[in-house]
Design a protein around this nucleic acid. Sequence first.
DNA 1: CAGTATCCCAGTCGATACTG
DNA 2: CAGTATCGACTGGGATACTG
Lengths: 113, 113
Amino acid sequence: MPYQDEGFGCPAEVGLHMISGKWKPRILYELFQETRRFGELRRRIPEVSRHVLTLQLRELEDDGIVKRTVFHELPPKVEYSITEFGRQFEAVLEQMVILGQQYIGSQQDSKGK
Amino acid sequence: MPYQDEGFGCPAEVGLHMISGKWKPRILYELFQETRRFGELRRRIPEVSRHVLTLQLRELEDDGIVKRTVFHELPPKVEYSITEFGRQFEAVLEQMVILGQQYIGSQQDSKGK
DNA sequence: CAGTATCCCAGTCGATACTG
DNA sequence: CAGTATCGACTGGGATACTG
């Protein structure tokens, strides 16, 4: 009887959807450590373009996972931090890292024969 | 220093990728309960087409999460079961359900004003 | 019963250029 | 510094029809 919310087939999808974005896990990894400025994120994740980084951050913000703080100074300064809600994703993502590494390990075993 | 495996920005993506598919959480929810035949899955998840169900099951199989057993009878019979590796995703997905429901709850609160 | 083969569309992501 | 605007490529998934 759960498993029927809006356009989603099951509630797990809702949670999954919030962190599904090519750079979201990587961004969250940074923000779990500490609050970062936009430019810092760019330097730490050089592979992502400004455009896409902005998009992913906006989605995370809209979903209540990340908080965006604008300082009206010159030059402009914007800080991104993890919210209390967002912090709850830390454990799941860590578990995902473990499962991902197990998978990678098993792939390499079967290759090395 | 982890965070640099193959085409993935971070190892969590590898784990995430394995269960990212529109119907995978829903399929896994079924298989966590017990082994199911293809037709059973179709009846229990009527929204997904045969085509896509097949695709998602194949991907889960390729990633070692699901085991496919073919019985060479007439009429044909195919059973899908969760592997030991796949079983490890149960806890994370349950956590995702909780987070998804929290999100849904908070959205409805802010709507109801 | 349990698939495969085709075709197509919508959403993501990347590259590039411009701006308060 | 931290964005926005625009365009184009790729891909995951849906609809439909056919098959061992």
